[in-house]
């Protein structure tokens, strides 16, 4: 029922930039696979190549054994694609949008209602409303319904949660998990690092390259070095002050309310006292230094530095 995806040494050059460099990857049938990376990492380009909207410069992609260049029509039949900008007709109502997308895939809303029931039920009260008047979260659900209406075996979602509030984001991921249970293979891209842990496996992308592919747990556990968390009354000066303490204090960056840094050579017991006393000399108060567990964002930034 579900399909597997294989990408081999994929390169994509545009006129001035190399959008993808030597990307190789395998996605197993029924997997919920995440592509994590900032804007410009090449996520959208990769998805457009998989959906056969773009042609690779070199390398190959196969979906369920079908080649994305020669068998592109068959691939288009079994993929559901939700582009980054939701691709809804804003002047059509919710119902009209769905009916239209159903009809171009030669099916109907009635016939496949059960497929999208869970999602569509939430927006059904607004079915007479124009898509342009929906909130971000509702637009996203409508776009997902449109992408699912023809019962695809591979679902590709390009930044589905960008521009959507936190509650809707959470709901959306729950929906994805539920859909995954029906056996569909799902590829999803996101710039939000915190969403990585919700995927079965993730690929961390940066400037057209894949830096790491694994389950979120393994990526996090394999974090090289010890990660620390600092908090003081003067967060503004903290970043530069930390930098001056010791050469082994690296990868200093803001992480929410705190600042993270990493050590490798320094003795574990000495770090917190060293940092606390040095910061005190520089006028910081209410200093808290403690060891912490790495998250995907830490791993991402560490990989970027390499």
């Amino acid at each position: 029922m579900s399909v597997k995806l294989e990408i081999q040494e994929l390169n994509k050059d545009f006129e001035k930039v190399k959008a993808l460099k030597n990307v190789s990857l395998k996605v197993e049938p029924g997997e919920l696979f995440g592509f994590i990376g900032p804007d410009g990492a090449g996520k959208t380009t990769l998805f457009r190549l998989i959906t056969s909207l773009l042609l690779p410069t070199s390398g190959s992609i196969s979906v369920d054994g079908l080649d994305c260049v020669s068998d592109f029509k068959k691939i288009r039949n079994l993929t559901g694609y939700m582009p980054g900008r939701f691709s809804l007709y804003l002047d059509l109502t919710v119902e009209e949008n769905l009916n239209f997308y159903a009809s171009i895939f030669k099916t109907s809303l009635k016939e496949n209602y059960h497929l999208i029931k869970d999602i569509y039920e939430q927006i059904e009260p607004f079915k007479k409303r124009k898509a342009g008047d929906l909130s971000g979260g509702m637009k996203q659900k409508l776009a997902l319904s449109c992408a699912l209406i023809h019962k695809p075996k591979l679902l590709i979602l390009d930044e589905p949660t960008t521009g959507v509030d936190a509650v809707s984001r959470k709901e959306f991921w729950e929906l994805l998990k539920k859909m995954q249970k029906t056996g569909i293979t799902i590829l999803v891209s996101t710039p939000y690092m915190d969403e990585a842990s919700l995927c079965d496996r993730v690929a961390l992308m940066q400037k057209g390259e894949i830096m790491a592919v694994d389950t979120p747990e393994i990526i996090v556990n394999s974090y090289a070095g010890r990660l620390w968390e600092v908090k003081t009354n003067n967060m503004f000066a903290l970043l530069s002050n930390l930098n001056e303490i010791n050469d082994d204090i690296r990868l200093i960056f803001r992480f929410g309310e705190t600042v993270h840094f990493t050590t490798t050579k320094l003795e574990e017991d000495t770090v917190s006292t060293l940092v606390a006393s040095s910061l005190k000399e520089k006028g910081h108060e209410n200093i808290v230094v403690k060891k912490t567990v790495a998250q995907i964002e830490d791993c991402f930034l560490a990989l970027m530095e390499e």
Binding site: R48, T51, L53, R76, Y81, P83, F86, S87, L88, L90
Partner: peptide, 13 residues
């Protein structure tokens, strides 16, 4: 411009 062309192209039309 609206990105709907992407969706149309991906369809079997």
């Amino acid at each position: 411009e609206m990105g709907t062309m992407e969706a149309l192209l991906v369809s079997p039309l």
